[in-house]
Structure formats: structure tokens, C-alpha cells
Design a binder for these strands. Sequence first.
DNA 1: TATGTTATTGACCGATCGGTAATAAAGTCA
DNA 2: TGACTTTATTACCGATCGGTCAATAACATA
Lengths: 202, 202
Amino acid sequence: MVMGRPRKVDPDVVLEKALMVFREKGYDSTSMSDLVAATGLHKGSLYQLFGDKHGLFKTALQQYTRRTYESMFAESRKAATATEGLQRTLNCMLTIASEGSSGSLGCMAVNAMVEFAERDPEIRDLLQETDQKIVALIMELSQRAIEEDGAELVQPLEMTAMMLMSVMAGLAVTLKAMITLEQAQQVAKSQLAVLGFKVDAL
Amino acid sequence: MVMGRPRKVDPDVVLEKALMVFREKGYDSTSMSDLVAATGLHKGSLYQLFGDKHGLFKTALQQYTRRTYESMFAESRKAATATEGLQRTLNCMLTIASEGSSGSLGCMAVNAMVEFAERDPEIRDLLQETDQKIVALIMELSQRAIEEDGAELVQPLEMTAMMLMSVMAGLAVTLKAMITLEQAQQVAKSQLAVLGFKVDAL
DNA sequence: TATGTTATTGACCGATCGGTAATAAAGTCA
DNA sequence: TGACTTTATTACCGATCGGTCAATAACATA
């Protein structure tokens, strides 16, 4: 056993609660008071655990991107075909972005990109890494869809991936106020179709 | 002539300077001090002119959406064909979103949507109105592209417009850190192509 | 029980936040 | 010139911001 006074609460559940606040309100409009209220911890404990507000946000964002990517990857592996895996991957992303009790919270990565891209290279790099991982996943699934499912892509692989990423990022935004999850899923499916994936067969 | 002490500066140029600050930093992380520094006005004058910070932002956002829509509409009318008009409309949007001395500022409407959608019905409604106007413009151009340019859309008109809007919103985000203006324009053009517009003929 | 170690707590900090009000300055009009 | 009207400017407000620190509490170990 480690020495010293034991923790009352699991840092992971604290991080999870802070994460939800940041997803809801973004970084700037979230105050330490908000985080204290949401986590139940006292301010000093939060600072001891995560350094400062920026550190807490960064940790929460990493948690979000890691877990979201893992969910997407896992979802892609559940499918019988690469094409279906691709569709499930996109739907997984949309489902996460649509979370929220009233109105969708959107994708925290997209939200953070909008808020931080111009002023925080650290966050920007972190988001670029995740972006590249997802692009790689999409390209791998697309390649397999060509080889295994007879997909006849009308655009090069790289362009196909860029177009899918653009659509997904856009849906993450419009999900916040313009469209429903069902509409977003329909858009994603149609996008796969127009790109040449054999999505009708599913 | 109107009575009273005359204004030193034109409120429109003040609004323009405030607009740029809001585009750069968003709402929350922009302080009144920032606005004072950027406009050259003193704090009291800003409050007299625009009420409060939120009012100033709302006015700036309306200015942005109005002007951007007018630019897009004007651009669409410059073209010889509806298809070319559509492409010019999209490129106009991307060009505006890519403005900024170092890195692109993105689309202020998209940025505001991310920051305000969950907490400010007034801003949300304002953005939804603009969204609908742009959707209407896109649908009108698409319809004309079918009738006049022989476009063979592979998706219904409404879905075509939704897909275009999603791509554009996504590009406005990714433009901030992930891609260049040239890449974004290429994505938009490819998107038009896969949707069935006769864009290769241009 | 005494000691070392870590976690929790509440009081406190200077800085900055958005916003206000009183006053000074610069014009028009009689 | 002097009254009137509007803008510009300064000083100031309470509240909240993110962050710190010393004191205390709760454990393991000796």
C-alpha cells in the first residue's frame, strides 16, 4: 500500500465529469467553479491532480480522442465487410457527437479545433494526430472495400478520405442545431454511396 | 446638421475592427479590453454604440452573415452557367473562411455555432436563418444546373444540398489547421462532381 | 504512539472581468 | 455668447476569474 492519505474519489471519474462540462461549455466559458461543482472536488484537489485548468482540459481532450478512436476502431471490427465497417465507424462518430441530454454536444475534437486552432499549438498538434489516425483508418477500410467488396471509388483514396472527413466534421457542427442524428446518418450513408462504396447492398 | 458633438470615427469601421477580433478569438476569450485596443475607442463609447459585449457580437455576426451571403449570391450571378455559379459560390465561402494573416480564421458562422449553439437561442436562430438562405441558394442553383447544364444528380435535391452544406461546414473547420485553401477548393469541386454536377466541363 | 507522506480543505491573492456614472469636450442653435 | 445636445473620457464598481498556500486530516510505517 502506498503511504499517505488515500483518495476519496477515483481520478478517472473526476476526469469524466470534467470532460462532460468541457464538452458542454467549451474551455473559456467553463470556470473552475463549474468544474468544482461538477466534480464535487475542492479547487485545491483539482489543481493537485491536473496542474491547472489548461492541463485538465488537455487531459480530458486526450481521454476523449483516445476513447472515441477506440470506439470507432472497435466498431469497424464488428462488421462483416469493410464497407459495413466504414459505415459503422462513421455512425459511431455521429452517435458520440450527438450525445447530450438537451441538444447534441457535438464532437469535442471539432469544438476544440474551433476554439484553439489559432492560439494553442499544443492542442492543435494533439488534434492533428487524432485526425491522421482517423484518416488512416478510413483509408484502410476504403482500400479493403475496393478489394473485398467491389467498391468502385470515383475519387482517389486520399481525396475520398478527405471528403469523408470534411462531411463528418461538418455534421458534427450542424448536429448541434441544424439537423437530427437520423439525418446525419443518412447524409453519411449517402456520402459513402456517391463516393462509390457499395452501401446499398448492406 | 444634427446637434451634439460629432463622432470621431465611423461606427461601421469600428464594427469591422471588432468583427475581426471576434473572428480571431471567438466570443468568450475576447475581452472588452481587446475590443478597446482593436477599435481605438474607449470602453464607454463602445457601450454607448452597441449596448454591451453580447450586443456588439450579435451585431458583428449579423454584419458577417449578411455580407458573406451577399458575396456568395453576387458570385453566383457572375457565372455563365448555374453549375459554375454553384462552384463560385462555394469557393467564395471557402475564400472568406480562409482569411487571416496567419492561419485561417474559419467561418465566423461556424465558429459561432460551435460556441453558442447550446446556450444562446438568439444566436442559434440567427445562424439557422442564414443556413436556410444558403441552402435555398444552393437548391436553386442545383435545380438550374439540372435544367440548364444537364446535371444528373444522384441524390434528391434536399439531400444534395445537405451534403454540400455538411462538406462546406467541415471544410470551414479543417481549414483552420488541417488543410489549405487549395485543398479545400479541390474537395468542394470533387464533391460537386460526385453529386452529379457537370463540373469537368468548366 | 510517534513519524512521514499524501489528500483535503478553506482562506486568501492579485488580476481581470463586464459594466456604469459623472464629467469634460465639441459641436449646433437661438 | 450662452443654452442645448451628443460624444468622449476618466475613474470607478462589485463580481468573478484562475491560482496559491498553510493548516489539517487520514492513512501507512516504524
